[in-house]
Design a protein around this nucleic acid. Structure first.
Length: 419
DNA sequence: TCTGGGGTCCTAGGACCC
DNA sequence: TCTGGGGTCCTAGGACCC
């Protein structure tokens, strides 16, 4: 059996842990730049605030209904996630951390265990240790566990946050209830297509001919179908090193000057290099993109990207920043107001397997330099050591007007209790 | 005024090899 | 009249997830 465990309205619940007076009150968490809504408490959902809602369009609604608004505090959410995951580890030998707020637990050899009871204990234990409320769906396959989890969310009173689908009858009942567009792995495009041929529920989907599914949804769709039928096809996945690393941001304001973009691109490339070194790898390819504000149809639009194959593999922030700026020069055009840019690196190899080139190589001095920078930043805080081509005055160039304290990761933000 | 960020996998088609 | 067979690698684009 598999369980899918996830934190209810995770970011909103994190904010509540240190602000218990907000229990029962509507909360929303905004994306970077305080752009759009990325998490909502149940009370906020009940007000009809949709996922992804632009914050400025709903500011009236927020004030009117006394909605508590937070800027995304990923340092905090990441730490809370880590705490939850490490507790889950004690309840099963096999755990897959699927996202910041979700994990699959595999229960093999638990035949004589009461899994429903086991998972109820898990939910209470994590709740007690972290303050994060969980939902747990248990079923014979991963895709079915996702369905069971959905049922927990939909019927919190009946299920008390834990639901097990351990019989064929329960599974079929659930699949007849689940709309095709709500199946994990079926997005907008596939849902539309399925609805067109009259498959409206998950039950309809699993009864389609294999050949149709294979042809229209590739092997991915076929695996999903089998898994939903109760035939375990999707297993836990190992944590693998990343194949791509990206740093991309929207800007606080629009930039037109090359020099402004240059600073951003340097910073993004430097950040990519740092992530790459954590993975002990070098990259061979780098991509830079810039774009104007897509939402402003009244302004001239320009999107472009440029890929550079590096002359030698590197994970030096200085070198990646240099090549990223070469790429930027190729695509920069004067006369546009840019709103977003990013650097992506790919085509990795382990840093200890890099072959020396006859003519050109990564600067040998950079390796110890980067090591020193990483060490200093670890001790004194992120982005303490930066390139001169980065903006040295400001670390964050984002709108974050409602940022909560880093309660659990910064000593100066720790809560004070008066007695 | 204002609209996020970071990933994965699969497929078709073209270029190229012997 | 009549133009092979069997591969690999790479890329762009499309789908999906949180």
């Amino acid at each position: 059996m598999y369980a899918l465990v996830d934190g209810n309205n995770f970011y909103a619940s994190c904010e509540r842990v240190f602000r218990p007076e907000l229990n029962g009150k509507p909360i929303v968490v905004l994306s970077n730049n305080d752009g759009c809504v990325i998490a909502r408490s149940n009370e906020a959902k009940a007000l009809g605030i949709p996922m992804g809602a632009p914050a400025f369009e709903y500011s009236k609604c927020f004030t009117l209904n006394n909605v508590h608004v937070f800027s995304a505090n990923f340092a905090f959410y990441g730490d809370m996630s880590h705490r939850v995951m490490s507790l889950l580890n004690d309840f099963t030998p096999e755990l897959e951390i699927y996202s910041i707020d979700e994990a699959f637990l595999k229960f093999e050899g638990f035949t004589y265990f009461n899994l429903e009871k086991h998972c109820t204990e898990l939910k209470h234990f994590v709740g007690q240790c972290t303050g994060i409320p969980l939902s747990v769906g248990i079923a014979p396959t991963k895709a079915l566990a996702k369905v069971a989890n959905k049922i927990c969310k939909k019927f919190p009173i009946q299920t008390k946050g834990v639901y097990m689908m351990d019989t064929e009858a329960k599974c079929m009942k659930a699949l007849k209830w689940l709309k095709v567009e709500d199946i994990w792995g079926i997005g907008r495009q596939h849902a539309k297509r399925l609805q067109q041929i009259g498959a409206l529920t998950a039950y309809d989907f699993i009864n389609l001919p294999d050949a149709w599914v294979r042809k229209n949804m590739s092997v991915v769709g076929l695996r999903l179908k089998l898994d939903l039928r109760g035939i375990p096809t999707l297993d836990l996945e190992e944590i693998e090193p990343k194949k791509n690393i990206a740093t991309t941001r929207s800007f606080e304001t629009m930039y037109s000057e090359l020099s402004d973009l240059r600073e951003r691109i340097s910073t993004f490339a430097f950040s990519c290099a740092e992530k790459l070194r954590k993975q002990k790898a070098c990259c061979n390819t780098l991509m830079v993109f810039i774009r104007t504000n897509n939402f402003r149809q009244d302004m001239p639009q320009y999107n472009n990207s440029s890929v550079i194959h590096l002359p030698f593999p590197s994970n030096s922030g200085i070198e990646l920043s240099h090549f990223a700026n070469l790429a930027l020069n190729k695509i920069y055009r004067k006369g546009y107001a840019y709103k977003k840019a990013g650097v992506m690196i790919m085509d990795f190899m382990p840093q200890d397997q890099v072959q020396l080139n006859v003519f050109e190589n990564s600067n040998v001095k950079h390796e110890p330099l980067m090591k020193a920078i990483d060490k200093l930043n670890k001790v004194y805080g992120m982005q303490k050591i930066r390139l001169a081509s980065q903006d040295l005055k400001r670390v964050w160039k984002m709108k974050q007007e409602k940022l909560s304290p880093k309660y659990t990761t910064s000593l100066k933000d720790i809560i004070t209790i008066f007695t």
